Computed example of a mutant assay.
Amino acid sequence: MNNISAVKVENLTKTFDGHEVIKNCNMNVRKGTIYGFLGANGAGKTTVFKMLSGLLTPTMGKAQVLGMDVNSDRGEILRNIGTIIETPIFYEHLSASENLEIHLAYMNANNSEIDSVLTKVGLNNTGKQPVSKFSLGMRQRLAIARALIHKPKLLILDEPINGLDPMGIREMRELFLDLVKNENMTILISSHILSEIEHIADTIGVIVNGTVIREVSLTEVKAECPTGLEDYFLDIMTGRIGNVKTY
């Protein structure tokens, strides 16, 4: 497995109104892998994603994305990552293709791959249909397309399969695996659907109250808890598995 880090976080802290939401957080996402980021609602997953994406400034600590500092290299990082964080917002009166064209113009990137990417996410037959007419699942597919369209090196995906039906979930699972295997991307992904993370992840990170308390390969998860990732995660949350184990 590649030991080069796509994301390296050391003692990261974020404070809001005197309250530490992220506390001395450490994590390591290896290039060319899928890292499943797990935690209960409010544990801090989205806040970490926002700091890695330059949407929030860390209070203390260090974070590097693709070897660049999140504080000083924000513009270059944004050109090399694709993100889904919280509810995606689109130009409602425009089509899927037109929304991607605008995003590419913003990113100063080439637009030759729009049809190909829309096909990859299953939106190739939407034509000029405005996004306002899209279902929740279609909007989520478009969010994934927008994250991919400028050919990023790293995807940061916060609950990317929300709103998808079982067929859509499987299609996105296959897409994520293909992006890592054949396009050399790295994926940092959160989801409450633990079975999906279990299908695709190489490494699991578990965050509790703003701190990553466990970082472990999926192979180790299966060895320690043969009944699967869901039971492993619940055992951590209830204290049946010890808290600290990191790379």
Score class of each variant (00 low, 15 high):
residue 1 M to E: 06
residue 6 A to L: 03
residue 6 A to W: 03
residue 8 K to Y: 10
residue 9 V to N: 04
residue 12 L to W: 04
residue 13 T to A: 02
residue 18 G to F: 03
residue 19 H to V: 15
residue 19 H to A: 13
residue 25 C to V: 01
residue 26 N to F: 00
residue 29 V to Q: 05
residue 31 K to R: 14
residue 35 Y to P: 01
residue 44 G to V: 01
residue 48 V to G: 02
residue 50 K to L: 01
residue 54 G to Y: 00
residue 57 T to V: 14
residue 60 M to I: 01
residue 60 M to Q: 13
residue 61 G to L: 02
residue 63 A to S: 12
residue 66 L to K: 08
residue 72 S to R: 13
residue 75 G to R: 04
residue 75 G to Q: 06
residue 76 E to N: 11
residue 84 I to K: 01
residue 84 I to Q: 10
residue 84 I to Y: 01
residue 85 I to C: 05
residue 86 E to P: 02
residue 87 T to W: 03
residue 92 E to V: 03
residue 93 H to V: 11
residue 94 L to N: 07
residue 96 A to Q: 14
residue 96 A to K: 14
residue 101 E to T: 12
residue 103 H to W: 03
residue 104 L to R: 04
residue 106 Y to V: 15
residue 107 M to F: 09
residue 109 A to S: 14
residue 110 N to R: 11
residue 110 N to Y: 08
residue 116 S to R: 03
residue 117 V to T: 09
residue 117 V to G: 05
residue 123 L to F: 05
residue 124 N to P: 00
residue 125 N to E: 12
residue 127 G to N: 10
residue 137 G to K: 09
residue 138 M to N: 03
residue 140 Q to C: 10
residue 141 R to P: 00
residue 146 R to A: 11
residue 148 L to V: 06
residue 148 L to M: 14
residue 151 K to A: 12
residue 152 P to W: 08
residue 153 K to Q: 14
residue 156 I to Y: 05
residue 157 L to F: 10
residue 162 N to S: 11
residue 162 N to V: 13
residue 164 L to Y: 02
residue 172 M to L: 09
residue 175 L to K: 03
residue 177 L to N: 12
residue 180 V to A: 08
residue 182 N to E: 10
residue 185 M to E: 02
residue 186 T to V: 05
residue 187 I to F: 11
residue 188 L to N: 08
residue 192 H to P: 07
residue 195 S to Q: 11
residue 195 S to P: 00
residue 196 E to M: 02
residue 198 E to P: 04
residue 203 T to V: 13
residue 203 T to D: 15
residue 205 G to P: 02
residue 207 I to K: 03
residue 208 V to K: 10
residue 209 N to H: 13
residue 210 G to D: 06
residue 210 G to R: 07
residue 211 T to E: 14
residue 212 V to F: 08
residue 213 I to Y: 07
residue 215 E to C: 12
residue 216 V to D: 10
residue 216 V to F: 00
residue 219 T to L: 08
residue 220 E to K: 11
residue 225 C to E: 15
residue 227 T to R: 09
residue 232 Y to C: 12
residue 236 I to C: 09
residue 238 T to K: 13
residue 238 T to C: 12
residue 238 T to Y: 05
residue 239 G to A: 10
residue 241 I to G: 05
residue 247 Y to D: 15
